[in-house]
Amino acid sequence: MLDDDRSTVRRRVRILLLCLALAIGLGAWHRSAVARGSNDPVTIVLRTLYSPLIRGARQVADSLSSLVSPIFRSRALEKENARLRRLNRRLTGEAAYLRDSAIRAQRLETLLGFVKTMPPRTLAARIVTLSLDGSPGQIVINRGSADGLKRGSVVVAPEGVVGQVYDMTPTTASVLAISDPRASVGARVQRSNGRTVGICRGVGARSLRMAYLSREADIRIGDTITTSGMGGKNGIYPPGLVIGAVRSVEEDLGSSGTSAIVTMAVRLDRLEEVAVLR
């Protein structure tokens, strides 16, 4: 009886060790493949198998939700419609003003001999999975190396910057969100015309910390923070993309300067589609 117990324990421990060895081995293989900008065959097979199922489940859920939700949300939709009409009127006016400003700016740029930079080519992509808590910023999109994506390609949404492509299979890509603690992005305060610059680092939960600001930095609560086109850990984001708005400004005891907490403009939990800058 005792021998039986011992052999059962030994068998269980052997299985555990085997599984752990497989997990660590496959993890190391995955890590080295990701470091080369590609992916290991196990991950490629699993993503290829599961991506269509996950996308299908999302589409079914979206269709059901769009069928059912209007029944419960008709009053809320009326209010939302009225609010959007007001917003549309205001934005139409602003767009006309901005068009005029753009024409004037273009004329001035030509006069000053500026080289006009071409806007980067973009590629629309759909979200396959989002996982934003325990493992912050894990986003998988339905475009991969076969679509011309590269490690470091910038991913944006209409509200602002989402993150950068981290690894790829031929048909999918992982995106590291800027709110992830592993991400960093060169940033500036839009209001200060580029004078106040720093580095934004993710602190999870839709927040970033803008650090390396001087004590006299011109930064206030509510300021819009955009990419500066400089710095960042995994490559450079083009300048002028909206990162978010300043939620609080505090003294940075570590560097005897100032730092700001920035709320990300993009609601990752509501993302459906994104654009990848190639």
Partner: peptide
Amino acid sequence: LILGAFGPIALTSIAV
């Protein structure tokens, strides 16, 4: 392994 395949780098930690 499947959950790790849909995350950027945390495959080992998720699997283990």
